[in-house]
């Protein structure tokens, strides 16, 4: 359930209860009544039905991806079959990070 959409805070109302959020191409005002911690301009937030429900710590994105790599690594142990896939993946990551 619950369509959740991440976006970046562009500005915050003087009362501090609303923010203008960029959803990577469209903007919309969202309410800050129920966000879990104080937010400031430039923060990323997760939004649902026009309300921010979580400030997304930027470091967590890297953390999540590492978690996934670790899962793959564990499943891969003793399995050479996937060497080619991992090679491809690393190449893709280098390309996208480069």
């Amino acid at each position: 359930m619950c369509l959740g959409v991440p976006g970046k805070i562009l500005s915050i109302s003087t009362e501090g209860d609303r923010a203008d959020v960029d959803f990577f191409g469209v903007r919309r005002e969202v309410r800050l009544d129920v966000v879990d911690e104080p937010v400031s301009v430039g923060d990323y937030v997760l939004n649902h039905v026009g309300f921010a429900i979580r400030r997304i710590p930027e470091s967590e994105i890297g953390v999540t991806l590492e978690l996934y790599e670790e899962l793959i690594r564990r499943a891969d142990e003793n399995d050479l079959m996937t060497a080619d896939v991992r090679g491809e993946m690393n190449a893709a990551r280098k390309a996208s990070d480069g």
Binding site: Y68, L71, T82, M89
Partner: peptide, 27 residues
């Protein structure tokens, strides 16, 4: 990190394939 780029990382076909392979092995 640009967020849209981050979102695309979570749709990366190569990573998806690797996870799919791992899923296969564990099943």
């Amino acid at each position: 990190m640009d967020k849209q780029l981050a979102q695309l990382k979570f749709r990366d076909p190569a990573r998806a394939r690797a996870l799919g392979e791992a899923l296969n092995r564990v099943t």
